[in-house]
Write a protein that binds this DNA or RNA. Structure first.
Lengths: 340, 340
DNA sequence: CTGTTAGCGCGTTCAA
DNA sequence: TTGAACGCGCTAACAG
């Protein structure tokens, strides 16, 4: 059997018109639901012809004509990140609910691709774009020909709408929980902070809270590249443990990826979370409950974030030119045995 | 500051032609790299005009005219599955290397969406489609207007190319490893087998190997819905342990998702892998090394699978009508402490 | 080497 | 109520 049978030519609107013995215009009207101006019999004939030819309108032609493609795009830094995938699922649902198709663009952490995709999306005339975790400061980000919504604040203000976690609320919740649970020394471990507003907010809030509490030791460690600098990570953990000997210690990780790296480090160092040290993670990876005794996490309403980012975009696509807004959702603490 | 400034009208090929004082044809030739037929001065003028207007060709118009969109699509059952995401990354890289854009369609395990997406892709005239884990037996799958490549064999033979893991090699490798390591009773746990060729192949190979070995107890458990039937899973594990009391026991899980469920079950039952029972998982989830003592896995060459699925598709898109082929890649055993 | 012309499939005047 | 004709932005056939 042979593959690739382009032989099946698709019927066009003209074919339908011919078969229904009418003009393309009426068919077009039928397609667009303007039934008020169609006689019952014509409508019937067209219906019949469409079914017979198995006709489906060509979206490309339609897009060209109407100037809107019903395509929207999601640009994300790293599709390996489960958080991003969750957001994507919410977004996807919203798209389908509204007749839009989602184009997923994975930057894959390669800076060059940011521009590449933005250009591409302009070339394809997408109706709108949702950007998650973009870092470029390129001027291309100004005056884009389509509306943009940002998931998580990541760059200097460009006047775009923002949807994301309420980092202040979430960090406060997590920090206070640890303190109330009797932890006396807390180290906050993060990846590169440059250009990533989300992480900055978490770090800053953490610092502020710790400072307000007397007798609590708070420390922040920033490691540029977790994949490369494993020894550095190990060293920081070790020296933290030594410095705070005798105190109840805990680690907070800024996101799921860091949590994985820290878990690996603790295994290497033979430090057991839930027993030798506390552990609390932003994001709620699926494996959080099977990793050792389980890891306490701060879960984000990812699905909702994805879904409502579409809603904001949709408003813009329909011509809403009002001031840029921020929609921040609260996080939820999922308590497991790493912090008991 | 206001968002959504569609005000910036994009320049068209006519604008460029006018500014360069020439016809659209020459501009088009320039765009398509046919420099052999362009005088140096004209080329120069066009180049200048394009830069000045910041012109970029409209892909929609181009697609309409040429009948090819440079769009290909990936249809997958569940984007939450890390295996699928890995495949996607390979595919994505291949697309970019060849100037194609990838459309990701997530079925999300909702059967109705399979047809929906296939229709959609026809409407958008994509050049080709890669299908991962589709289950429909709908006639729509025959005579599609674009070439198709299947990742993992999942349905009755439709004459499409197939790329995936060599399940026989992989299962043999895994099973023999367990037997050689001294395990005497092995239970193979899988999700629903109906319509999923990949899982069937793994199960069948497992059965065959176990039967050949004297003194080895082999058992297969199929659980339809892992999310709903957690008690059932627990029961099966418990009864297996009772039945095979005194023997060295191991569990094999058919994929990463099942591994997660089984890990959770073992935690509930307070059975410790690597000590009370062996555990070996198809797929290699990122968390395999932080779950308890670590989980031995059978890693698939996911990236390569994704990349080469594009290559096969590409050949078809260029008109190769030869017989459908199968490309199967071997798996690799990653040994951790769950099977020592 | 270059420009004019005719569509690709569809939506939208405008006149009947 | 209906349909003919034009054009969206681009490429290709055909003349020059």
């Amino acid at each position: 059997m042979t593959n690739n049978r382009q032989s099946i030519k698709k019927a066009t609107i003209s074919d339908v018109a011919k078969l229904a013995k009418t003009g393309k215009t009426s068919v077009s009207r039928y397609l667009n639901g303007e039934f008020g101006i169609l006689s019952a019999t014509l409508k019937e004939r067209i219906e019949q012809a469409i079914k017979e030819l198995n006709y489906r309108p060509n979206q490309m032609a339609r897009s060209l004509k109407k100037g809107q493609t019903k395509l929207i795009a999601l640009i994300l830094a790293d599709i390996t990140n489960p958080y991003s995938v969750e957001v994507m699922k919410g977004l996807e649902a919203a798209c389908q609910d509204n007749g839009y198709t989602l184009l997923v663009c994975n930057i894959n952490k390669e800076k060059a691709k940011e521009k590449y995709f933005l250009q591409l999306l302009m070339d394809y005339n997408v109706d709108g774009v949702i950007i998650h975790a973009l870092r470029t400061q390129d001027s291309i980000l100004r005056d884009l020909p389509f509306p943009v919504v940002l998931v998580d604040r990541r760059m200097s203000d460009l006047g775009y709408d923002i949807v994301g976690l309420d980092n202040i609320q979430a960090t406060t919740l997590a920090s206070n929980y640890l303190i109330d649970s009797g932890f006396e020394a807390i180290i906050f471990i993060t990846e590169s902070l440059t250009g990533v507003g989300t992480r900055q907010e978490r770090v800053n809030t953490f610092k502020k809270i710790v400072k307000q509490q007397k007798g609590i030791v708070g420390e922040v460690v920033e490691i540029e590249d977790m994949n490369q600098q494993t020894e550095l990570l190990d060293q920081h953990i070790v020296s933290f443990c030594q410095k705070c000997r005798g105190m109840r210690k805990a680690i907070v990780t800024v996101n799921g990826s860091v949590t994985l790296h820290v878990s690996l480090a603790l295994k290497r160092l033979n430090i057991i979370w839930g027993k030798d040290i506390g552990l609390l993670s932003f994001d709620d990876p699926v494996w959080a409950s099977v990793a050792g005794v389980g890891i306490t996490t701060l879960r984000q309403p990812t699905y909702k974030i994805g879904y409502s980012s579409f809603e904001m975009l949709h408003r813009r696509m329909q011509g809403d030119h009002s001031e840029a807004k921020e929609y921040l959702y609260p996080g939820e603490l999922i308590i497991r045995d790493s912090t008991n």
